[in-house]
Design a protein around this nucleic acid. Structure first.
Lengths: 178, 178
DNA sequence: AGCAACATGTAACGAGTTACATGATTTA
DNA sequence: TAAATCATGTAACTCGTTACATGTTGCT
């Protein structure tokens, strides 16, 4: 039931409508952590309201319903964040491809690894300046801006995969570009 | 339809039964990349056989059916491995928690990050000697042992998350002393 | 003889995606 | 006034989990 907790976590930043939350999944969370479309989000918000985890705190034009966390919701979010199950749910197509690299012919494997390395380098080139800008604009006496920790995670993730792809190419006996 | 491709990739190493494949998901693939139980694997193998991607190459005791890749299956695996969609499917509870760290009170966030750092350190302490042993036993003139690249990925992944948790603690500690 | 491991399947349910469906408000 | 965006919802389908269900083989 991670969608529920993703929504609780997003609402912890402040009230939002189903529409707002749907757009939040277009960003980093949807790319790296969890995906959901509006057709799943609206019914889930309904159930969460029934369960007392959220309330409609405001209605706006076009039938907009803004949801806010209740104390119960915040408690449930905290419970979920602090206590991890033994084995957490992971489903990642990219990692699956990494596991299966060695099922390809060496030439194909090399091409794939080169593609991964290039992709990571490109993403790093996009993400690094964004994070640098966030840091430059941030007063160090204020709390860390929301999303900065997640952004750093993304950065380190791409660096790790990039390094892994180059290491793998070298290990396979390819001429490593760069 | 990644389960299908996970199965194709596993069968690329050699023929296996549904039972064998089910156990394969208990290992690294199930922990880091994709999960599936036997109740999903058996019907999928049936459909893949219908589609001509695999064939039953051998039957054994207890109704055991060993499946082998066909040329079509190998072609489909290769196609999937080399053609990445723009956005790949990811669903990772741990990363979701990382994204939501900042929805916690600073004290809770710190406790969570410390837990993550400890967990990564423990996993590294387990995984590193295993990989070192694989390397020590491996003749460098032979192809890289199957799973070694995936293992290296796991290693670098844990290192990255470990570093991220420590960085985050430092970054948070600067703003809220305690 | 009894137990563990091997081995396969189905059914009910939960979770997510895609497609279908509708309408209001703002902006050019 | 037309288009883009805001805004919500349902239905059919796919994929995965948990529970139900059954039977065989090898080992001690």
């Amino acid at each position: 039931m991670s969608l529920r907790h993703a929504l609780l976590g997003l609402l912890a930043q402040g009230p939002a409508s189903g529409y707002d939350l749907t757009r939040a999944f277009d960003g980093g969370i949807g790319q790296y952590a969890w995906q959901a479309g509006h057709s799943r989000i609206y019914p889930e918000l309904g159930k969460m309201a029934e369960a007392g985890l959220v309330v409609v705190d405001e209605t706006g034009p076009r039938g907009r319903k803004s949801y806010a966390l209740t104390d119960e919701g915040r408690t449930e979010l905290r419970r979920w964040m602090l206590h991890w199950p033994e084995r957490t749910a992971v489903r990642d197509e990219t990692v699956l491809r990494m596991f299966l690299v060695q099922s390809l012919e060496p030439d194909d494997a090399r091409r794939l690894l080169e593609g991964i390395a290039e992709h990571c380098a490109a993403e790093l080139a996009k993400l690094r300046p964004v994070m640098d800008e966030v840091d430059a604009e941030h007063d160090p006496r204020e709390p860390v801006p929301f999303g900065r920790l997640a952004g750093e995670y993304g950065l380190r993730q791409y660096e790790a995969v990039h390094g892994w792809a180059l290491w793998s190419l070298e290990r396979m006996g390819a001429t490593v570009p760069g």
